[in-house]
Amino acid sequence: MKKFKIAFLLLAAGLITAFNTIKPAGYEIGSIATDFSLKNVDNKMVSLKDYKEAKGFIVIFTCNHCPYAVAYEDRIIDLDKKYKKLGYPVIAINPNNPEKQKDDSFDKMKVRAKEKGFTFPYLFDDGQKIYPQYGATKTPHVYVLQKTDKGNVVKYIGAIDDNHSDETAVEQKYVQNAVDALLKNQDVKVKTTKAIGCSIKA
């Protein structure tokens, strides 16, 4: 009987482990986001801890090739221009594997950053190691982080706004609303949203 019990416990433990591995990894609101050291288009390594003065970050997984990402490029530049000086710089990360998506190679990232005049770091997730920790599934995919004593806390996950195709028709500026609230020490009202995007090619 005891043997059965042990066998059962082992089985249960196995199942729990199995379910844990199946469950998609990734951050929820309140998670502490990992820092990283990723190469920027200027060949320098960038980490969140380098930003001593920052109050938080607008981390955006984005890329060159995806039309949704391209549709948002100007708006991402605007976000950076507006919020960098308020303590929330944009950190853009390309999560795609260039072997699967040639247009997202590091060299092409440099070209795109120059063409568009990116004002923010555009980092390459070499080996595709960082995006799974965040739980990003597509580009663009935004994580707004707030710097605290415990680390960088995830405060918003999702879309930039509610209209990818027409900036003038936007009604909800999700990221701006989230950062504005954090700057006023208020609770972020809309904490998660969803948008269509290009699946990340690992």
């Binding site: 599934t137 999702g158 999700y174």
Partner: peptide, 19 residues
């Protein structure tokens, strides 16, 4: 364009990536 309003009506678990 307001995908946030309809993605979960297709499927609760859809993150929005295609296919």
């Amino acid at each position: 364009p307001d995908a946030n309003s309809w993605i979960e009506k297709v499927a609760k678990e859809w993150t929005g990536a295609i296919p």
